[in-house]
Simulated scan of single mutants.
Amino acid sequence: MDYETITPEEFGASLRGLGLNLLVRDVRVEAAFLVSVFGMAAHRLSADFAIMVYGDQVMQLHADHTYAANPILGLVPESPPRGAGASLHLFDSDPDTVAARAEGAGGMILQPPTNKPHGLRECCILCPNGYAWVASRPLTEIERKAK
């Protein structure tokens, strides 16, 4: 699928399974953060919308104003964190690499890279829009034995 030329109707009709759409104050700022920190690709980037691709996963960013007629917008808090209670996991991102990139890209490290008992090395980063992004990868054999 060519995300740069697909029509909104074709794109919408192509979506399957679980979808992720984030409302953000500034689509370009959030897209730049996700590209810089997590290596995502941004498509159809505008002030209103972006298609973000992480591996083979697709998500969408919409500017707040595009939801003016949608009741969800009334639930979005004026100040961060917007996504309180939700954590967005990116399982194929190295937490150490991501943490090193995050602060320079406007993120705040909520939890530095840490080996977890559930077999993952993770870090949690709050993006400028207040969403908690969790970068994680499986623990190495050495890390598992070091517990």
Score class of each variant (00 low, 15 high):
M1A: 12
D2P: 04
D2R: 02
T5R: 10
P8M: 01
P8L: 01
E9D: 08
E10N: 13
E10D: 15
F11Q: 08
F11C: 08
G12L: 02
G12R: 15
L15M: 12
L15W: 14
R16P: 10
R16G: 11
G17I: 03
L18H: 14
G19N: 11
G19M: 15
G19H: 11
G19I: 15
L20P: 14
N21W: 08
L22G: 08
L22Y: 14
L22M: 13
V24Q: 00
R25M: 13
D26G: 10
V27E: 00
V27I: 03
V29F: 12
L34G: 09
V35K: 03
F38A: 13
A41E: 14
A41H: 12
A42C: 13
A42I: 04
L45S: 08
S46N: 07
A47R: 07
A47G: 09
F49R: 03
I51Q: 04
I51H: 03
M52T: 06
D56I: 04
Q57M: 07
V58Q: 03
V58H: 03
M59T: 13
Q60C: 12
Q60F: 09
Q60A: 13
A63R: 01
A63W: 04
A63E: 04
D64Y: 03
H65K: 02
T66V: 08
T66H: 05
Y67R: 04
A68Y: 04
P71D: 00
P71K: 02
I72K: 09
I72E: 00
L73R: 02
L73C: 02
L73V: 08
G74L: 05
L75M: 11
P77W: 04
P80K: 15
P80R: 14
P80Y: 11
P81T: 09
P81F: 07
R82A: 05
G83P: 12
A84D: 11
A84Y: 11
G85I: 07
S87T: 15
L88H: 15
L88F: 11
H89S: 14
F91P: 06
F91A: 15
D92I: 12
D92N: 14
D94M: 03
T97C: 09
T97R: 13
A100S: 11
R101C: 04
E103L: 11
I109D: 09
I109Y: 02
L110Q: 06
Q111M: 15
Q111D: 13
Q111H: 13
P113S: 06
P113Y: 06
T114K: 01
N115G: 07
K116L: 15
P117M: 07
H118E: 02
H118T: 10
G119N: 00
L120M: 13
L120F: 10
L120I: 08
E122L: 06
C123D: 04
C123W: 02
C124S: 11
C124N: 12
I125G: 01
L126W: 05
P128R: 11
N129V: 05
G130F: 01
G130C: 04
Y131H: 01
Y131C: 03
Y131P: 01
Y131K: 00
A132V: 07
W133G: 05
V134A: 06
V134Q: 01
A135C: 06
S136F: 12
L139D: 10
T140W: 10
T140H: 10
E143F: 03
E143T: 06
R144P: 07
R144M: 10
K145C: 10
K147Y: 12
